[in-house]
Design a protein around this nucleic acid. Structure first.
Lengths: 228, 228
DNA sequence: CGTGAGATTGACTGTACTCAAATGTGGTGG
DNA sequence: CCACCACATTTGAGTACAGTCAATCTCACG
C-alpha cells in the first residue's frame, strides 16, 4: 500500500487524464485535508452492489472498473468504464442504484461522503470541483444516451474504439481491457454483433487485430465512420 | 412577472416535486441570497443551443422543457423532459453540449453559475444541495441508458407512461405534454413504433386513449409489462 | 498436449425501421 | 357553426439490421 502523501495535481481542471502509478491520496488538488484510503480489488471482484449503502466515493488509481445496472431477467447495461483518475460511486440517496466491479486487479482510493461534504463546506474549490465532477459524468451520460438511442452498430463500435484509445493515450494501438461481453453490454449490443462488427471493420481496413484483445486503429478512417 | 420573494421550501430534500404556480425565486430552501430571475419562453422556443455559453442554470416554474443532442444527419436523442421544480442547464465546460427548448409556454427562473458557485462556497447546505441535484441527474441518466440499451419497444413506452404519470401527479389520467416525435426521440424509437405500441397497449386493455394526447392508464397492468 | 473460456462465424429469425397512404385533430376564418 | 387547412397520428406493406441459436475456432494455462 502506498503511504499517504500530498502530491497535488499540477493543474486544477483536468482530474480525468490517467495518472498511471500515481500515489496521490488527496481527492483534489489543493485539498490536503481530504484524504482517501487506498484499497485493492481483484479481477472481476465486486466493489459494491445495488442496494448497498453508498457512504463512500471511489477514485481509480490503477486498473479499471465498470459500473452497471441489471434487469430481473439478467439483461445488463454497463453505464461506464472507469480508468485511473476517474471518480465513481456518486449516489443521490442512501443506497447504490447500480453495481461496480473491477475489470482487472485494481487499486482505488476511498473517500467518505460525509468527509467530502464537510470539506466542500469549508473549501469553495472543493465544492466547485465536485460540481465539475458530477456534470462531467452527466455529459458522458448524455453522449452515451445519444449513442444507445440513435447510433448503428458500426457507429457504436467505432465510437467506442476511438474513446478507449483516447483514454489510453491516443496512440491508436492498445489492448482492450474488457471482454466482448462487457463491450456489448456497454454498447447495447450482443457479443456476436460486436464481434462481427470488428471483423467487418478489419475487412474494410479500418483496424487491425493481432491476438485476442490487441487492436491497431486507423484513426482517420474510424473517425469517418462516426461522422458527427 | 412574479415579484421576488423568499418563500423557502418546507423540507430540505425534495426540490423535485412540481410546484405549479409557485412564485419561489430562491434556488434552494434556506438560501435567500441565491435569487433567480424570472423568464418566459413560448411553445417550441429555443432556450439555448449547442455551443452557446453556459453561464446560467435554469429551474422550471411552469410548463415543460426538453433537452437533447443531435447528430449531423438530424438523428436526435432527447436526454430529458423537465417539469416544474426541475433544474436543467448544468454544464461542465464553458459551452453547452446540448440544446433546450420549451415544449409549451414555459416560465423559468435563471441563476448565474458564478453566483451559485459563490453561494456554494459560503453555504454548506447549498453545496450539498447542488451535489444532490447533479447526482439525481446522473441517476436518471443511468436508468435511461438501461432503457435505451436493453429494453424492448413495449417496455420503453410502458416505462415512459408510468414515469410521466408519476411526475404529473400519479392519477393515471393525463394529457401527454409532448408530441409523438418527442416521445420517439426520447425513447430511441420512431414515431410509427411509438404509435403502434400505444395501439397495441390499448388493444390489450392496458390503457385508454381519448383524444390525441389524453390517456388513462391501467397502472397495475402497465407495471406488469415493465417487470424489473 | 488437453482443457475450457472467450471469440468468431454461419444460418435463420424477429423486432423495429422505412416508405407510403389514410385518418384524426385542433385552429382559423367565413 | 361549420368548412377548410395544416399538421399530427395511425395504419399498412415490405425490408433490414441486429438478435438468436448453434457450431467452430483460438489461445492461455495447467
Amino acid at each position: 500500500m502506498a503511504t499517504p502523501m500530498t502530491r497535488p495535481f499540477p493543474s486544477f481542471e483536468p482530474v480525468n487524464p490517467p495518472v498511471h502509478g500515481g500515489r496521490e491520496v488527496a481527492l483534489f488538488a489543493g485539498c490536503p485535508e481530504l484524504l482517501g484510503t487506498p484499497f485493492s480489488y481483484g479481477r472481476e471482484e465486486e466493489i459494491y452492489g445495488e442496494g448497498e449503502d453508498a457512504d463512500v466515493v471511489y477514485r481509480v488509481v490503477d486498473g479499471a472498473v465498470r459500473t452497471h445496472k441489471v434487469l430481473g431477467d439478467g439483461r445488463r447495461q454497463i453505464t461506464g468504464f472507469h480508468l485511473p483518475g476517474d471518480l465513481f460511486g456518486f449516489e443521490q440517496g442512501e443506497a447504490h442504484r447500480h453495481s461496480a466491479e473491477a475489470l482487472s486487479d485494481t487499486k482505488v482510493l476511498i473517500f467518505r461522503r460525509s468527509a467530502i461534504q464537510r470539506a466542500a463546506a469549508r473549501n469553495a474549490d472543493v465544492a466547485c470541483h465536485l460540481w465539475n465532477m458530477a456534470t462531467r459524468g452527466l455529459r458522458h451520460a448524455q453522449d452515451h444516451m445519444l449513442l444507445l438511442g440513435r447510433r448503428s452498430a458500426v457507429e457504436r463500435v467505432a465510437t467506442f474504439l476511438i474513446d478507449v484509445d483516447e483514454r489510453l493515450g491516443g496512440t491508436g494501438t492498445f489492448a482492450l481491457p474488457m471482454t466482448r461481453r462487457d463491450i456489448a453490454d456497454y454498447l447495447g449490443l450482443t457479443i456476436e454483433t460486436v464481434s462481427r462488427t470488428l471483423s467487418q471493420l478489419e475487412e474494410a481496413g479500418t483496424l487491425l487485430r493481432t491476438g485476442g484483445r490487441q487492436v491497431s486503429l486507423r484513426l482517420q478512417r474510424l473517425r469517418r465512420v462516426v461522422e458527427d
